[in-house]
Amino acid sequence: MTDPALALTDVTFAWPGQSGFSLSCPAFYMAKGESVLLLGASGSGKSTLLSLICGIATATAGQINVGGTDLGTLGAGARDRFRAEHIGVIFQQFNLLPYARVIDNILLPLRFAPKRKSRTTHPVAEADRLCTSLGLPEGVLKAQAGRLSVGQQQRVAVARALIGAPPLIVADEPTSALDAATQDSFLRLLFEQTGQAGSSLLMVSHDERLGRRFDRVLQLEDLVTTQRTAA
């Protein structure tokens, strides 16, 4: 249990080919089970940072360690597989394949993560349990994802991120599409379930009111420096 949930060391990154934008992050550390909120306005490099952590983009230099694995040592295919196995991702909105049923959306990451799948003994029952715990109506599993309300869709996205209990949950402004009342209950349920799964939670937002539930709140600008040079 010595491995951190997430550790970035001397990471620098520049979008390949694209002129102008570069990012560096000297040090960032998250312990297992910890919840961290990164506050930052859009354009502060949060998308790039999340892409790096999820292994979609690769650092130009430095180390990104997720749950004890250095992403830099993995090839592109292995990083995709690693992401499926270890990270649950929640977006701002439009999280789901609208044409697919809720159950198919929730089970989708398991399709690419055999270990995570084998950890989940009864995937459908687990999906059902998550949905119930997240306050989704009964029978929602068979509904078409695109027909649900935005709030319900976000909760389905949480269920999808949590299925198979991946060690790290990455959430990119998951509440910004919700109204204040729903935001609160959404966060409460998110924390409840993340805690139960024992996952670490890294959330990025521009809304500092969300901070009180987190173990730590960091300003993104303290963590990373971005540079934009005119093309």
């Binding site: 999820c54 597989r81 439009f94 690419f112």
Partner: peptide, 16 residues
Amino acid sequence: RREMAIWRAMGARPST
């Protein structure tokens, strides 16, 4: 494109 991003986030490779 959004749909493809979801696939990617779930761990799908570009070849998928």
